[in-house]
Computed example of a mutant assay.
Amino acid sequence: MNWLDDYKEELHTVFQDSRTIISGFPEPFRSQGLAYLDQFDVFQVHSKKNYICYLLPYWLNRECGLSLEETRRMSTGNVVLMLFFFLQDDLMDNRQSAPAEVLPLANLLYVEFLDLYRPLFPPESLFWSYFRRYITEWADSVAGEAAGDYYWNDRSRVARKASPLKLSSTAALLLSDKSSFIAESEEMLEAVLLTLQMLDDYEDWEEDLAEGSYNCLLSLVRHHLQQDTAILTPAAVKDFIFTTGGLTQYAATAAVNHEKLLSGRLSIPGLTAFHQMLVDNLLHIAAAIEAEKALLQGGGLGYWLSKNMNL
């Protein structure tokens, strides 16, 4: 089973459904919402690909036996809720964002998410208790990240910045009378979300260092050097990555996360395959750095030959 290709046709439907929902908004929120959706549409060139958000309901379908209508509804709900929370993030992270432009659109998206999930769960359903908890986890995590140094002190809280994603896994398990697996599914998702954040933070560390944003890799560097993140320099981070083999240690944490996925009772092959891809990316980057370092240590001629000759 391929974690992405098997679901591309369905994703076309999900994004079309999301586009139809947003097209019903009054202007200027209709235009703003559609433009924002395009930034995350998996079929748009150069869009941000939040695959786990779109695909988690489909990955769960095999284990939970959901109907196609339920699966599509939850995936569309995930897209709408993703946009809602990313708008919140933009407002908190970007001082140039205008609340008067962001908040009305965010609230329209939030109402649409509720309308998608209400038919699945009556008011007395346990789903709404989990809903409250996941929103609380998100609020707690985004509010205290920098001061709490989560990567070093409590890595579960790194993942809980994306706690609302757990709604669709919990929803699927409740609909299929598998609520006994909810705690395990939460742990699995937190392992994947941590690795996903770690990979993003490796790619974004220079920007995050310049802006003073919290970053998992920078946390590791700071503790390695026993320095405050505020006084880290790009040269010091590059030395940690390229000279001391720090990225190998960083990638090892992702590999441990994968073992957690494989050791549980709950089987979600799509999620496991997606996470393996994330882990492999980090491991390959770390291995490539170490291989290039070994070539450099082997002498200038050997390094030149490795770069310029097809042997």
Rank of each mutant, 00 (worst) to 15 (best):
M1D: 08
W3A: 04
Y7S: 05
E10T: 08
H12E: 15
G24V: 03
P26M: 10
E27P: 08
Y36M: 06
V42W: 10
S47W: 07
K48L: 11
N61I: 03
E63H: 11
E69S: 15
E69Q: 15
S75Y: 06
F85D: 03
D89K: 10
D93K: 07
N94R: 13
S97K: 12
A98W: 10
E101D: 13
A106I: 00
E112W: 01
E112L: 03
D115E: 15
Y117R: 04
F121K: 00
S129A: 13
Y130M: 03
Y130Q: 00
R132I: 09
R132K: 12
A146Q: 14
G148K: 01
Y150S: 02
W152P: 00
N153D: 05
D154V: 10
R155G: 01
K161H: 06
S163E: 05
K166R: 15
K166Y: 12
S168W: 03
A172T: 02
L174N: 04
S185W: 04
E190D: 15
L194T: 11
L199Q: 11
E203N: 09
W205H: 05
E206F: 01
S213T: 05
Y214F: 02
R222C: 15
T229E: 14
I231D: 08
P234E: 01
V237Q: 04
I241M: 06
Q249D: 12
G264I: 01
L266K: 10
L271C: 02
A273Q: 13
I285L: 11
I289E: 07
I289W: 01
E290S: 13
A291Q: 13
G299E: 06
